[in-house]
Amino acid sequence: MRAYYMDEDPSDQRLPHDSGVAVPEEILDKLGVLRWYIPVDAEGKWESQVDVIADERSYRNRDIVFVTKEGMGDQFEANLKKFYHEHMHEDEEIRYIIEGGGYFDVRESPTDSWIRLHLGSGDMIVLPAGIYHRFGLDTNMRSRTMRLFKDEPKWIAHYRGEHTDTNPFRIDYLKNLQSNGVAVGA
């Protein structure tokens, strides 16, 4: 996984948009972004390593989503737009990339800058509840991803706006940032 600040170029979201400024791991830690690298192997050893993390974090359900034109059919373009629209969740978002790759963009506090995380096969990430983020595919336009859930599999996005700024999960996230020594914007 690579982490860097995004440039300000609004063109094709599949491009790297690398500003050339790397994001230190300490910043990701303060933002609550957890990450692991678990190589995908033919023997399936990766599954037991994912299971350990899932058990530690109380994840009981999972599914595998194929973010491809073939996997999503007519809903492919609509889903990509939905995933890339800035949002937050009231649960952690935990993903393990089995094949392909993509970008998770997260908002830094208090600057509100976009930090781009480029994930590929073997990368696992946990985004905390309440963090503003979005997802997009890279130029390979495919990702086979395991999604893990504490309860039944669901994906409920709360798109950024006045309502989400006052969402209790967003407020708790900002309080956690402050306890980690991160300044929080107004």
Rank of each mutant, 00 (worst) to 15 (best):
45 K>V: 03
46 W>C: 06
46 W>P: 03
47 E>N: 07
48 S>T: 10
48 S>C: 07
50 V>N: 02
53 I>Y: 11
54 A>D: 13
57 R>L: 15
58 S>W: 05
58 S>T: 04
59 Y>W: 02
60 R>S: 15
61 N>E: 13
61 N>L: 01
63 D>E: 13
64 I>A: 03
64 I>E: 02
68 T>L: 07
68 T>M: 09
68 T>Y: 01
69 K>T: 13
72 M>Q: 12
73 G>W: 11
73 G>K: 02
76 F>D: 12
78 A>L: 13
79 N>I: 03
79 N>K: 13
83 F>K: 10
83 F>L: 09
84 Y>G: 10
87 H>S: 12
88 M>R: 00
88 M>H: 14
91 D>P: 00
92 E>F: 04
93 E>D: 09
95 R>Y: 04
97 I>Y: 08
100 G>C: 07
101 G>Q: 09
101 G>A: 05
107 R>I: 15
108 E>L: 09
109 S>M: 07
112 D>A: 12
113 S>R: 14
113 S>K: 15
115 I>Q: 14
118 H>F: 05
118 H>M: 11
119 L>G: 03
120 G>Q: 09
120 G>R: 12
120 G>A: 12
121 S>Q: 13
125 I>D: 03
127 L>H: 00
128 P>Y: 11
131 I>S: 12
133 H>S: 07
134 R>N: 09
134 R>Y: 02
134 R>P: 08
135 F>K: 02
135 F>T: 02
135 F>D: 03
136 G>Q: 07
138 D>E: 05
139 T>P: 03
140 N>M: 03
141 M>L: 14
141 M>V: 01
145 T>N: 08
146 M>Y: 05
146 M>G: 00
147 R>I: 05
148 L>V: 01
149 F>N: 04
